[in-house]
Simulated assay, not measured.
Amino acid sequence: NIIDVEMKKLGENMVKDCAGLPLAIVVLGGILATKNNSLNEWQKISDNLKSYLKRGKNQGPEDVLALSYDDLPPYLRPCFLYLSLFPEDYMIDVDRLIQLWVAEGIVSSKQEERDGGEIAEDVAESYLMELVERCMIQVRERDVATLKVKTIQMHDLMRDLCLSKAKQENFVFIVDQSNASSLSMIRKRYMFNNFQLLRALNYERTTGDRFAGFKLPSDIGNLIHLRFLSLKDLEFLWPKLPSSLGNLRCLQTLDLRVDRDKIHVPNVIWRMEQLRHLYLPSRCESSTKLKLGTLRKLLTLVNFNTKNCYLKDLINMTNLRELGINLPFNIENFNEELGENPPIIGSKYLHSLSIITSGYESIDPRHLAHLLSNCTSICKLSIAAEISKLP
Protein backbone atom coordinates (compact mmCIF):
# COMPACT_ATOMS: atom_id res chain seq x y z
CA ASN A 1 0.00 0.00 0.00
CA ILE A 2 1.62 3.24 -1.18
CA ILE A 3 -0.16 5.37 1.44
CA ASP A 4 1.05 3.15 4.30
CA VAL A 5 4.61 3.34 2.98
CA GLU A 6 4.42 7.15 2.78
CA MET A 7 2.97 7.41 6.31
CA LYS A 8 5.71 5.14 7.63
CA LYS A 9 8.36 7.33 6.00
CA LEU A 10 6.75 10.48 7.43
CA GLY A 11 6.60 8.91 10.88
CA GLU A 12 10.25 7.87 10.79
CA ASN A 13 11.35 11.34 9.71
CA MET A 14 9.31 13.00 12.48
CA VAL A 15 10.78 10.64 15.08
CA LYS A 16 14.29 11.60 13.89
CA ASP A 17 13.40 15.24 14.46
CA CYS A 18 12.68 14.39 18.10
CA ALA A 19 16.42 13.81 18.55
CA GLY A 20 15.95 10.65 20.57
CA LEU A 21 14.08 12.34 23.45
CA PRO A 22 11.35 9.93 24.67
CA LEU A 23 9.10 12.76 25.89
CA ALA A 24 9.15 14.47 22.46
CA ILE A 25 8.34 11.16 20.71
CA VAL A 26 5.48 10.44 23.12
CA VAL A 27 4.07 13.98 22.75
CA LEU A 28 4.32 13.74 18.95
CA GLY A 29 2.36 10.50 19.17
CA GLY A 30 -0.23 12.31 21.28
CA ILE A 31 -0.63 14.96 18.57
CA LEU A 32 -1.01 12.36 15.81
CA ALA A 33 -3.53 10.40 17.89
CA THR A 34 -5.93 13.37 17.79
CA LYS A 35 -5.90 13.55 14.01
CA ASN A 36 -7.64 11.43 11.40
CA ASN A 37 -5.38 8.54 10.48
CA SER A 38 -4.78 9.88 6.99
CA LEU A 39 -1.71 10.74 4.92
CA ASN A 40 -2.94 14.32 4.51
CA GLU A 41 -3.16 14.90 8.29
CA TRP A 42 0.25 13.35 8.90
CA GLN A 43 1.75 15.50 6.15
CA LYS A 44 0.35 18.65 7.80
CA ILE A 45 1.92 17.70 11.15
CA SER A 46 5.23 16.92 9.43
CA ASP A 47 5.20 20.29 7.63
CA ASN A 48 4.34 22.11 10.85
CA LEU A 49 7.13 20.34 12.70
CA LYS A 50 9.67 21.35 10.03
CA SER A 51 8.58 24.98 10.20
CA TYR A 52 8.92 24.90 14.01
CA LEU A 53 12.40 23.42 13.69
CA LYS A 54 13.47 26.20 11.31
CA ARG A 55 11.92 28.91 13.45
CA GLY A 56 13.31 27.47 16.68
CA LYS A 57 16.91 27.04 15.48
CA ASN A 58 16.58 23.24 15.33
CA GLN A 59 16.23 22.71 19.07
CA GLY A 60 14.39 19.50 18.27
CA PRO A 61 12.60 18.29 21.43
CA GLU A 62 11.62 21.80 22.59
CA ASP A 63 10.15 22.53 19.15
CA VAL A 64 8.01 19.39 19.30
CA LEU A 65 6.69 20.43 22.71
CA ALA A 66 5.92 23.93 21.41
CA LEU A 67 4.00 22.38 18.53
CA SER A 68 1.97 20.33 21.01
CA TYR A 69 0.85 23.55 22.76
CA ASP A 70 -0.03 25.39 19.55
CA ASP A 71 -2.01 22.34 18.41
CA LEU A 72 -4.29 22.61 21.45
CA PRO A 73 -7.89 23.72 20.80
CA PRO A 74 -8.75 27.08 22.45
CA TYR A 75 -10.72 25.54 25.34
CA LEU A 76 -7.72 23.43 26.43
CA ARG A 77 -5.10 26.19 26.46
CA PRO A 78 -6.15 27.91 29.73
CA CYS A 79 -6.50 24.47 31.37
CA PHE A 80 -2.91 23.69 30.41
CA LEU A 81 -1.55 27.14 31.36
CA TYR A 82 -3.16 26.87 34.80
CA LEU A 83 -0.78 23.99 35.58
CA SER A 84 2.07 26.53 35.63
CA LEU A 85 0.86 27.55 39.10
CA PHE A 86 2.06 24.28 40.64
CA PRO A 87 5.69 23.78 41.75
CA GLU A 88 8.16 21.57 39.91
CA ASP A 89 7.62 17.81 40.42
CA TYR A 90 4.40 18.55 42.34
CA MET A 91 1.82 15.77 42.56
CA ILE A 92 -1.40 17.51 41.54
CA ASP A 93 -4.64 16.24 43.06
CA VAL A 94 -7.14 15.98 40.19
CA ASP A 95 -10.27 16.69 42.25
CA ARG A 96 -8.68 19.84 43.63
CA LEU A 97 -7.48 20.92 40.17
CA ILE A 98 -10.97 20.51 38.70
CA GLN A 99 -12.48 22.52 41.55
CA LEU A 100 -10.00 25.32 40.84
CA TRP A 101 -10.70 25.24 37.10
CA VAL A 102 -14.43 25.64 37.77
CA ALA A 103 -13.91 28.33 40.44
CA GLU A 104 -11.69 30.40 38.13
CA GLY A 105 -14.21 30.16 35.29
CA ILE A 106 -11.81 28.23 33.07
CA VAL A 107 -14.54 25.60 32.84
CA SER A 108 -17.96 27.20 33.10
CA SER A 109 -20.73 25.95 35.36
CA LYS A 110 -23.30 28.25 33.72
CA GLN A 111 -23.91 25.94 30.79
CA GLU A 112 -24.84 22.89 32.82
CA GLU A 113 -27.62 20.76 31.46
CA ARG A 114 -30.42 19.91 33.84
CA ASP A 115 -31.94 16.49 34.45
CA GLY A 116 -28.86 14.35 34.12
CA GLY A 117 -26.79 16.45 31.73
CA GLU A 118 -23.07 17.09 32.05
CA ILE A 119 -22.04 19.32 34.91
CA ALA A 120 -18.95 21.54 34.92
CA GLU A 121 -16.88 18.97 36.83
CA ASP A 122 -17.65 16.32 34.18
CA VAL A 123 -16.61 18.70 31.40
CA ALA A 124 -13.42 19.56 33.29
CA GLU A 125 -12.61 15.88 33.71
CA SER A 126 -13.02 15.32 29.97
CA TYR A 127 -10.63 18.24 29.32
CA LEU A 128 -8.12 16.69 31.71
CA MET A 129 -8.33 13.36 29.88
CA GLU A 130 -7.68 15.16 26.58
CA LEU A 131 -4.45 16.55 28.03
CA VAL A 132 -3.56 13.03 29.23
CA GLU A 133 -4.23 11.56 25.78
CA ARG A 134 -2.07 14.25 24.24
CA CYS A 135 0.70 13.16 26.67
CA MET A 136 1.06 16.71 27.99
CA ILE A 137 0.52 15.54 31.57
CA GLN A 138 1.43 12.24 33.20
CA VAL A 139 -0.92 10.07 35.26
CA ARG A 140 0.60 9.14 38.61
CA GLU A 141 -2.29 7.48 40.45
CA ARG A 142 -5.71 6.04 39.63
CA ASP A 143 -8.61 5.19 41.90
CA VAL A 144 -8.59 1.45 42.58
CA ALA A 145 -12.38 1.15 42.42
CA THR A 146 -13.32 3.52 39.58
CA LEU A 147 -9.98 3.74 37.68
CA LYS A 148 -10.44 7.51 37.51
CA VAL A 149 -7.25 9.57 37.55
CA LYS A 150 -6.46 10.77 41.09
CA THR A 151 -3.10 12.52 40.72
CA ILE A 152 -1.08 13.88 37.79
CA GLN A 153 2.37 15.35 37.28
CA MET A 154 4.18 17.36 34.62
CA HIS A 155 7.50 16.45 33.05
CA ASP A 156 10.16 19.10 33.78
CA LEU A 157 10.50 20.09 30.10
CA MET A 158 6.73 20.28 29.65
CA ARG A 159 6.46 22.42 32.75
CA ASP A 160 9.17 24.74 31.39
CA LEU A 161 7.08 25.17 28.24
CA CYS A 162 3.93 25.72 30.30
CA LEU A 163 5.58 28.37 32.47
CA SER A 164 7.10 30.12 29.45
CA LYS A 165 3.75 30.28 27.63
CA ALA A 166 1.94 31.42 30.78
CA LYS A 167 4.39 34.33 31.18
CA GLN A 168 4.10 35.26 27.49
CA GLU A 169 0.32 35.44 27.75
CA ASN A 170 0.31 37.19 31.16
CA PHE A 171 -1.58 34.25 32.58
CA VAL A 172 0.40 34.22 35.86
CA PHE A 173 2.32 36.59 38.10
CA ILE A 174 5.59 35.07 39.26
CA VAL A 175 6.94 35.88 42.72
CA ASP A 176 10.74 36.00 42.86
CA GLN A 177 13.41 37.65 45.04
CA SER A 178 12.74 41.05 43.47
CA ASN A 179 9.13 41.28 44.69
CA ALA A 180 8.78 38.63 47.41
CA SER A 181 9.37 41.02 50.34
CA SER A 182 6.73 43.55 49.27
CA LEU A 183 4.21 40.82 48.53
CA SER A 184 4.91 39.26 51.92
CA MET A 185 4.08 42.58 53.60
CA ILE A 186 0.80 42.79 51.69
CA ARG A 187 -0.06 39.22 52.64
CA LYS A 188 0.55 39.76 56.34
CA ARG A 189 -1.16 43.11 56.83
CA TYR A 190 -3.68 43.77 54.13
CA MET A 191 -4.26 40.52 52.30
CA PHE A 192 -8.03 40.28 52.77
CA ASN A 193 -8.57 43.99 52.03
CA ASN A 194 -6.35 44.39 48.95
CA PHE A 195 -7.52 41.34 47.02
CA GLN A 196 -11.29 41.73 47.18
CA LEU A 197 -11.78 40.49 43.60
CA LEU A 198 -10.01 37.21 44.38
CA ARG A 199 -11.85 34.13 43.12
CA ALA A 200 -9.66 31.35 44.54
CA LEU A 201 -7.66 31.30 47.79
CA ASN A 202 -5.74 28.08 48.27
CA TYR A 203 -4.54 28.97 51.77
CA GLU A 204 -3.59 25.41 52.71
CA ARG A 205 -0.07 24.35 53.65
CA THR A 206 1.51 21.50 51.73
CA THR A 207 5.02 21.56 53.21
CA GLY A 208 6.86 23.11 56.13
CA ASP A 209 5.34 24.98 59.06
CA ARG A 210 1.55 24.71 59.22
CA PHE A 211 1.09 27.40 61.87
CA ALA A 212 -1.05 30.14 60.32
CA GLY A 213 -1.33 32.52 63.28
CA PHE A 214 -3.52 33.04 66.30
CA LYS A 215 -6.78 32.84 64.37
CA LEU A 216 -8.30 33.23 60.93
CA PRO A 217 -8.88 37.01 60.49
CA SER A 218 -12.51 38.07 60.30
CA ASP A 219 -11.51 40.25 57.33
CA ILE A 220 -11.70 37.11 55.20
CA GLY A 221 -15.39 37.94 54.95
CA ASN A 222 -14.42 40.86 52.67
CA LEU A 223 -13.49 38.45 49.86
CA ILE A 224 -17.08 38.28 48.69
CA HIS A 225 -16.16 37.10 45.18
CA LEU A 226 -14.36 33.97 46.38
CA ARG A 227 -15.40 30.76 44.64
CA PHE A 228 -12.75 28.57 46.26
CA LEU A 229 -11.34 28.62 49.81
CA SER A 230 -9.15 25.95 51.38
CA LEU A 231 -7.78 26.06 54.93
CA LYS A 232 -6.67 22.43 54.81
CA ASP A 233 -4.00 21.47 57.37
CA LEU A 234 -3.58 25.02 58.67
CA GLU A 235 -3.04 25.32 62.43
CA PHE A 236 -4.74 28.06 64.46
CA LEU A 237 -4.48 28.63 68.23
CA TRP A 238 -7.98 30.14 68.51
CA PRO A 239 -10.59 27.34 68.53
CA LYS A 240 -13.22 29.24 66.55
CA LEU A 241 -13.66 30.19 62.90
CA PRO A 242 -15.11 33.70 62.26
CA SER A 243 -18.80 34.12 61.51
CA SER A 244 -17.80 36.49 58.68
CA LEU A 245 -17.31 33.35 56.56
CA GLY A 246 -21.05 33.64 56.00
CA ASN A 247 -20.40 36.64 53.71
CA LEU A 248 -18.76 34.35 51.15
CA ARG A 249 -21.98 33.48 49.36
CA CYS A 250 -20.35 32.80 46.00
CA LEU A 251 -18.23 29.94 47.35
CA GLN A 252 -18.31 26.73 45.34
CA THR A 253 -15.61 24.86 47.28
CA LEU A 254 -14.96 25.23 51.02
CA ASP A 255 -12.35 23.11 52.80
CA LEU A 256 -12.31 23.56 56.60
CA ARG A 257 -10.13 20.53 57.45
CA VAL A 258 -7.80 22.54 59.70
CA ASP A 259 -5.02 20.93 61.72
CA ARG A 260 -6.65 21.15 65.13
CA ASP A 261 -8.16 18.60 67.52
CA LYS A 262 -11.49 20.45 67.67
CA ILE A 263 -12.74 23.71 66.26
CA HIS A 264 -16.04 25.60 66.35
CA VAL A 265 -17.68 26.27 63.00
CA PRO A 266 -20.35 29.02 63.09
CA ASN A 267 -23.75 28.16 61.68
CA VAL A 268 -23.36 30.29 58.54
CA ILE A 269 -22.60 27.70 55.86
CA TRP A 270 -26.31 27.48 54.97
CA ARG A 271 -25.94 30.94 53.37
CA MET A 272 -23.51 29.58 50.75
CA GLU A 273 -26.13 28.23 48.38
CA GLN A 274 -23.65 27.95 45.47
CA LEU A 275 -21.51 25.41 47.35
CA ARG A 276 -20.61 22.31 45.34
CA HIS A 277 -17.87 20.80 47.53
CA LEU A 278 -17.84 21.05 51.33
CA TYR A 279 -15.15 19.55 53.57
CA LEU A 280 -15.97 19.97 57.26
CA PRO A 281 -13.36 19.64 60.06
CA SER A 282 -12.70 16.07 61.18
CA ARG A 283 -13.83 17.06 64.68
CA CYS A 284 -15.96 20.03 65.67
CA GLU A 285 -16.62 21.52 69.08
CA SER A 286 -19.80 20.23 70.73
CA SER A 287 -21.27 23.75 70.37
CA THR A 288 -21.20 23.41 66.56
CA LYS A 289 -24.56 22.65 64.96
CA LEU A 290 -24.79 23.31 61.25
CA LYS A 291 -27.84 23.68 59.03
CA LEU A 292 -27.00 22.46 55.54
CA GLY A 293 -30.44 21.91 54.01
CA THR A 294 -30.11 24.90 51.65
CA LEU A 295 -27.06 23.42 49.88
CA ARG A 296 -28.98 21.81 47.01
CA LYS A 297 -26.04 22.07 44.55
CA LEU A 298 -23.69 20.10 46.76
CA LEU A 299 -21.74 17.35 44.98
CA THR A 300 -19.23 16.50 47.72
CA LEU A 301 -19.79 16.43 51.48
CA VAL A 302 -16.99 15.18 53.73
CA ASN A 303 -16.93 14.70 57.55
CA PHE A 304 -20.70 14.82 57.98
CA ASN A 305 -22.03 13.52 61.32
CA THR A 306 -25.30 13.62 63.21
CA LYS A 307 -23.79 15.35 66.25
CA ASN A 308 -22.84 18.59 64.52
CA CYS A 309 -25.23 18.41 61.52
CA TYR A 310 -28.89 17.59 60.89
CA LEU A 311 -29.59 14.20 59.32
CA LYS A 312 -32.73 15.50 57.61
CA ASP A 313 -30.65 17.92 55.50
CA LEU A 314 -29.22 15.06 53.41
CA ILE A 315 -32.57 14.53 51.69
CA ASN A 316 -32.32 18.02 50.11
CA MET A 317 -28.91 17.32 48.55
CA THR A 318 -30.31 15.80 45.39
CA ASN A 319 -27.07 16.14 43.39
CA LEU A 320 -24.71 14.62 45.96
CA ARG A 321 -22.08 12.32 44.45
CA GLU A 322 -19.65 11.76 47.31
CA LEU A 323 -20.53 11.49 50.99
CA GLY A 324 -17.99 11.05 53.76
CA ILE A 325 -19.42 10.30 57.21
CA ASN A 326 -17.25 10.82 60.27
CA LEU A 327 -19.04 9.11 63.17
CA PRO A 328 -21.25 9.46 65.12
CA PHE A 329 -24.06 8.61 62.74
CA ASN A 330 -27.37 7.85 64.44
CA ILE A 331 -30.91 7.78 63.11
CA GLU A 332 -33.33 9.16 65.68
CA ASN A 333 -36.64 7.38 66.24
CA PHE A 334 -35.36 4.43 64.23
CA ASN A 335 -37.87 1.61 63.67
CA GLU A 336 -36.87 -2.00 63.00
CA GLU A 337 -38.99 -2.15 59.85
CA LEU A 338 -37.27 -0.29 57.02
CA GLY A 339 -40.59 0.63 55.48
CA GLU A 340 -41.44 2.76 58.50
CA ASN A 341 -38.30 4.88 58.14
CA PRO A 342 -38.13 7.73 55.61
CA PRO A 343 -35.26 7.76 53.09
CA ILE A 344 -32.05 9.48 54.19
CA ILE A 345 -30.27 10.18 50.91
CA GLY A 346 -32.07 12.39 48.39
CA SER A 347 -29.55 11.95 45.57
CA LYS A 348 -29.75 9.26 42.91
CA TYR A 349 -26.20 10.16 41.79
CA LEU A 350 -24.35 9.14 44.98
CA HIS A 351 -21.52 6.83 43.89
CA SER A 352 -19.00 7.09 46.74
CA LEU A 353 -19.71 6.54 50.43
CA SER A 354 -17.08 6.40 53.16
CA ILE A 355 -17.63 5.92 56.88
CA ILE A 356 -14.77 6.63 59.26
CA THR A 357 -14.24 7.53 62.91
CA SER A 358 -11.73 9.90 64.48
CA GLY A 359 -12.47 8.43 67.93
CA TYR A 360 -13.92 5.19 69.28
CA GLU A 361 -17.48 5.48 68.00
CA SER A 362 -19.19 2.51 66.36
CA ILE A 363 -22.07 2.43 63.89
CA ASP A 364 -25.31 0.52 64.42
CA PRO A 365 -25.63 -2.15 61.68
CA ARG A 366 -29.35 -1.35 61.37
CA HIS A 367 -28.62 2.32 60.73
CA LEU A 368 -25.99 1.40 58.15
CA ALA A 369 -28.42 -0.99 56.44
CA HIS A 370 -31.03 1.75 56.17
CA LEU A 371 -28.47 4.23 54.87
CA LEU A 372 -27.28 1.78 52.20
CA SER A 373 -30.85 0.99 51.16
CA ASN A 374 -31.04 4.56 49.79
CA CYS A 375 -27.74 4.27 47.90
CA THR A 376 -28.69 2.51 44.68
CA SER A 377 -25.79 3.81 42.55
CA ILE A 378 -22.86 3.17 44.90
CA CYS A 379 -19.69 1.97 43.19
CA LYS A 380 -17.28 2.70 46.04
CA LEU A 381 -17.95 1.89 49.71
CA SER A 382 -15.34 2.34 52.43
CA ILE A 383 -15.93 1.59 56.14
CA ALA A 384 -13.15 2.28 58.65
CA ALA A 385 -15.11 2.14 61.88
CA GLU A 386 -16.17 -0.37 64.52
CA ILE A 387 -19.25 -2.38 63.60
CA SER A 388 -20.58 -5.55 65.23
CA LYS A 389 -21.64 -7.11 61.93
CA LEU A 390 -22.13 -6.18 58.29
CA PRO A 391 -25.77 -5.84 57.27
Rank of each mutant, 00 (worst) to 15 (best):
E337Q: 12
N303Y: 04
C375R: 08
K188W: 09
V139P: 09
K232S: 07
E41T: 03
S109T: 10
L254W: 02
R55A: 11
C18F: 03
L353W: 09
D47R: 14
N40S: 15
A385W: 03
V5K: 10
R159M: 07
I325Q: 04
E336I: 04
Q59W: 00
Q99I: 09
V175H: 03
R159A: 07
T306E: 02
L371T: 00
I174L: 08
T357D: 09
I152M: 03
D233I: 01
D219T: 14
I356A: 03
N13W: 02
D122H: 07
G117Y: 12
E133C: 13
S181T: 14
S282I: 07
E235W: 02
E361D: 14
G116N: 10
N333G: 04
F211A: 07
E169V: 08
M14R: 02
L223N: 08
L280K: 06
R260L: 06
M129W: 10
G339T: 04
D364E: 06
R187H: 12
K35F: 10
K9D: 15
L81C: 13
T294N: 15
L216M: 09
I31C: 06
Y279M: 12
L368E: 01
L21W: 12
P78W: 13
L320H: 08
C284A: 10
S184G: 12
V172I: 13
I152W: 01
L298W: 03
L290E: 10
L372D: 02
S126R: 14
N305I: 02
G105C: 08
S362V: 00
L49T: 00
E88Q: 09
W42I: 00
A103I: 05
P87R: 03
A200R: 04
V64Y: 00
G359I: 06
Q111W: 13
F192T: 04
R227V: 01
I345F: 10
R296E: 12
S68A: 15
